[in-house]
Amino acid sequence: MKKKSFWQPKIWQRITKKLWLPAIVLSCVFFLVGIYWVFEKTPNDYQQGFVFKIFYIHVPAAWFSLGLYAMVAGLSAIYLIFKAPVSFILARSCAWTGLLLTIICLITGALWGKPMWGTYWVWDARLTSMALLGFLYIGYLLTGSAFNRLEMGWKMSSFIALFGSINLPVIKWSVEWWQTLHQPATLSKFSVPSIHNSMLLGLSFMIVAFFLYTIALISLLYQVQRFQCMNGMKGKKSYGI
């Protein structure tokens, strides 16, 4: 039975309740140090100057919005296979967080695009697929609560999440497959980063800050989502919620 305990939402309630406060405090610390480092210790870019510093918000937000969608899709698959409500509640918490990060990514991208490219928005493959990611998050979240029979909504939205995961490789490689206005990736796993070393430390601070912020937000959202699902399930079959 010990192994089984992670399927119980109560366990996650206990974990998230302990997790959110330290995560958000640490996130703030890293964010402040990161912002200080980015604005005081990081040189401007040789051609973009000061505007380049939007990079430090834009890139972590983009990464985690993609990563969280992968989490949502994975958890949805687990939900569809094992019918464990806990994975649905976790997926929904991830989806809210991911939607927020997608919006941050799109807004900072627009603010970066106007001074550098000369436009807030174009319909190139990268920007369009990223907007689609936002709509997938919205669609997932809406379907999840659109049905009278709760399990029906959970099932449908999990299918949508799985279906949308096809968009992830499209976003990742859109800049390689098609001609886009957006530049290719600066940091990729298999090559030396195309960013000067003096600009990397600020990025790592910001990535840690975003990671901790994500953890904190998921933890808080988990408690809200669990409460909602618990209320919805009142008087019905016990799901161990």
Binding site: P43, N44, D45, Y46, Q47, Q48, F52, F55, M116, W117, G118, T119, V122, L181, Q183, P184, A185, T186, S194, I195, H196, S198, M199
Partner: peptide, 17 residues
């Protein structure tokens, strides 16, 4: 009727090259 600038994925301080 419209000109947009493209920039590459490389970032470095001025004079780094």
């Amino acid at each position: 009727t419209e000109v947009l600038a493209k920039h590459d994925e490389k970032y470095m301080p001025p004079g780094a090259i």
